[in-house]
Design a protein around this nucleic acid. Structure first.
Length: 270
DNA sequence: AAAGACACCTGTCCGC
DNA sequence: TGCGGACAGGTGTCTT
């Protein structure tokens, strides 16, 4: 479910409800997520959330005594609900506030995570080595070009590597490479600076428009919502195997790259 | 040091 | 209708 746009949408969606709000209790029904939820998460109780931030696909909820790190994995979702709302399957964690609202975490596949750190969260092992945020000015064609000079790995895997740049998941890697006209199998080290400029432009455009489309989800944040907004935006290649390329009418191909489905037009993308 | 495979888990869809 | 198998939006960790 969550690519960067949904994580961003979730973050913006929960912030107005939980920021400056005091945690009453944390209820853990299923501690076995990707990692065991640590007992130290209880330190969050009776603390006020001072900040809600996103770093990559991690959501950071900071209090005076420490920071909760939350990751949605493949299938996680967050909902702001009344504290007494009936449970659904896979509702693993509730963070209850004194004003009787509840931040509820649901995650069927349990690839998500909820961790606690009392130090500087950016020093946490999971955050420390993360690459640039894709929607910053630092993330440029020149940056990717510099970092890729020695690299023989496929460009799609290179831009999906979180130590290079965070937040580019399988859907948007496919889409951005299509928009930039780059073959996903091409070695990262053999791509020109100009092509990287186009790729970075495409990445920013596709993520930004998806986040804007996610506004639909944002508006519905309190109610049970359907598919995230970005899913409704028209994807050009992802999931389009066998269909005609929107640019040239050649057939969209499907291959596996790093065990992930990779869709592209072999005519447009060289 | 870097690249590739594997692991974690449930739900859904497709072909027989 | 049922069943087996492949696959799904992520990413840390282990093995080469």
């Amino acid at each position: 479910m969550p690519e960067l746009p949904e994580v961003e949408t979730s973050c913006l969606g929960i912030e107005p409800f939980i920021k400056n709000n005091k945690v009453k209790k944390i209820i853990i029904r299923q501690p076995k997520l990707r990692w065991l939820i640590p007992a130290t998460i209880k330190a969050m109780e009776n603390q006020t959330i001072q900040q809600v931030k996103r770093r990559g696909k991690y959501i950071l909820m900071t209090t005076k005594s420490g920071t909760a790190l939350l990751h949605l994995g493949m299938s996680g979702s967050l909902h702001i609900i009344p504290a007494d709302k009936p449970l659904k399957k896979h509702d693993h964690v509730d963070i209850l506030f004194y004003n009787d609202i509840c931040l509820r975490f649901n995650d069927p596949r349990r690839f998500g995570a909820l961790l606690w750190t009392d130090g500087n969260p950016y020093d946490h092992a999971l955050l420390q080595k993360l690459g640039l945020e894709p929607l910053t000015d630092d993330f440029s064609g020149n940056y990717l070009w510099q970092r890729s000079r020695q690299s023989k790995r496929a460009i799609k895997l290179f831009i999906m590597a979180s130590h290079v740049v965070v937040g580019i998941g399988n859907i948007y890697a496919n889409e951005a490479l299509f928009h930039a006209g780059i073959n996903p199998k091409k070695a990262a080290g053999k791509i020109s600076k100009m092509a990287y400029d186009q790729l970075v432009y495409a990445i920013k455009a596709v993520l930004t428009s998806a986040i804007e489309a996610g506004g639909t989800t944002l508006r519905d944040f309190q109610s049970a919502h359907g598919k995230p907004g970005y899913f409704q935006q028209d994807l050009k290649v992802y999931g389009k195997k066998g269909q005609a390329c929107v640019k040239c009418q050649h057939t969209i191909k499907l291959i596996r790259l790093g065990q992930r489905s990779t869709f592209y037009c072999s005519y447009c993308q060289n």
